[in-house]
Design a protein around this nucleic acid. Structure first.
Lengths: 336, 336
DNA sequence: GTGAAAGCGCTAACAC
DNA sequence: GTGTTAGCGCTTTCAC
């Protein structure tokens, strides 16, 4: 009850067990090449239990020059669901290595001023995972140059020479188009975000897929906008109200998909009878739209888990594959 | 470029500036009662710049017996949006105190085994914020007994004697009912989660509000369920298809609200003409339902910010009010 | 005004 | 097999 801040140290354990501090350390860290007599080990372990000893990670980090924490950086406006799911994977991947997660937000800053760089310099971080954070090439170079271990988690390959885990969701686009066609659909539209990053090739993949199926891309059926809800709605409305409106629609992101559903309701267009919709991405709101939304869903948890493993290996100096691609999955619900 | 892991210490700064390590510390920490000659200060600051020195927070923590990090705990299945918004507030509240955020998930465990307790015992945490994490009274007692500083962020007052920040959203329920009545509505229903925690009095507040307006509570118009989407839909469907169905509906949570909208579409009930819906809580999906959802929205960011401030004060040994109540706000959109 | 020195709790040579 | 010891980088008392 009253053990308020009277923290016990390995010294106390040593005294209690009648051994030296070093022995305690050897035992607790399972140091290789150090053989401990079973009874000594038992005595120490007993003392640990009895005194309720917990190694001071700060002191440990001081000695080992490690913080036992890794920074997870995200954009402030990233879709929460993406981040949280990825975070869960990261957590579980980090857990058994005794690494904790320090949460950081990405703010547009000069490389050397970035919060995560300062944190790294202050020994608060042993490495960084960027989870759907828009990190520019200069920053990546800066971090690499400084020797800061980091891993990117993002939709698909960046064009940078960095460690990253991404997914093959673009390769599902042709399947979506084929699926639409198999349902007897001819006029297929696209509504998605303005391609911002160079590595964002959703729209391009859509065009290729359409051509690949022997159809022509009708540019009237392709709309893009920024991430503002009203702008997305306007873009969708353009599609819904145009002369020869599409019979099927690929939505470039979850929010585009959901707003397209709303928009079709607004204009009294029956989904999926008059318009089929399939979205790119994952959301926990796909099941609560009417009708529920089909989508190419990302392996967010696995991506986080894998990124954690990669980063740990990187920090430990193990050999690591530069890039991991995890499989997405087309999930058909009521909208398509 | 090549300063790979060749970290500079305050010793290096001292040498560079031709002073002692102590002086560097005095200057960098602005220690009271220590007067430094301007030129000394300037010399040290120059050296800091020149060498790009960053204090090692681990070493600092070691000396000060602080980790300069606070743990933020949430349930794994908490609505992401709640958590992220609160987190942003916490972040900003912590920032200028140089505290970082260590992210932790709440798992059902014995008090002493809980991850955050272990982290605290290992000096990785100076305090804890529970953000919409369902922490039971025994745990609260345990933490208090151990002298672990912690703050709860939740909807409304727990019945525990703990530091907490909550919101007055229950007090908006009568206003919602009055609003409905002012629109000429008589039959008002409720769809919300099964009251799990003792402190969850949404439904109770609903009943009181109905009575307070001189109406009777029709128990046929009150449905509850657990948080499973299908179960929520069933509950909503019961309401939508019952003999004398409600003209207005209070949804106990964002997800209940959104699923009620879906359900009314499913049964061809026009919102808000035939059924008005107002939800309790905040979501970034209220604007993408059709029609958009009115709601009593929580001051999530402010709650996080306030909790951070309280915890810092608690850790610093300042006097702190036990409980803070921040105002929610009824936001009318298209559904009500 | 500034410096010398002790020590936070741990790990890891090295000694025996 | 286990103990001795020397720090890791910082803060802080005490001395001057």
């Amino acid at each position: 009850m009253m053990d308020v801040k009277k923290s016990v140290s390995s010294r106390d354990v040593a005294r209690e067990a009648g051994v030296s501090q070093a022995t305690v350390s050897y035992i607790l860290n399972n140091v290789e090449n150090v053989k401990i007599k079973p009874e000594t080990r038992a005595a120490v372990l007993d003392a640990v239990k009895k005194l309720n000893y917990h190694p001071n990670e700060i002191a440990r980090g001081m000695k080992l020059k490690k913080s036992m924490s890794i920074g997870v950086v995200t954009d402030r406006n990233v879709t929460n669901f993406y981040f949280m799911k990825t975070l869960e994977g990261i957590r579980d991947g980090l857990q058994r290595h005794n690494y904790s997660i320090t949460l950081l937000f990405n703010k547009p800053e000069e490389a050397a001023d970035a919060e995560y760089v300062r944190y790294y310099d202050s020994n608060r971080l042993d490495g960084i995972i960027f989870a759907f954070a828009d990190i520019d090439p200069d920053m990546a170079d800066y971090l690499t140059g400084k020797g800061i271990p980091f891993v990117l988690v993002d939709y698909n390959h960046s064009n940078k020479d960095v460690y990253e885990v991404c997914t093959d969701y673009l390769s599902h686009i042709p399947k979506v188009i084929e699926y639409f066609i198999s349902k007897g659909v001819k006029r297929i539209g696209y509504a998605g975000p303005n391609p911002a990053r160079i590595s964002d090739s959703r729209l391009e993949a859509f065009r290729r897929a359409i051509l690949g199926c022997g159809l022509d891309v009708d540019e009237d059926l392709v709309v893009t906008s920024d991430f503002d809800d009203d702008r997305i709605f306007e873009a969708a409305a353009k599609l819904m109200t145009c002369e020869k409106r599409p019979e099927a629609l690929l939505a470039g992101s979850p929010r585009f998909g959901i707003i397209c559903v709303k928009c079709s309701q607004r204009f009294g267009i029956k989904v999926p009878e008059e318009l089929k919709i399939i979205a790119l991405g994952t959301s926990n709101f796909f099941t609560v739209t009417f009708p529920s939304l089909s989508a190419v869903e990302l392996p967010l948890y696995d991506m986080g888990f894998k990124a954690a493993e990669m980063l740990i290996d990187l920090i430990s100096g193990h050999k690591v594959e530069k890039s991991e691609v995890l499989p997405s999955e087309l999930i058909i619900r009521d909208s398509g």
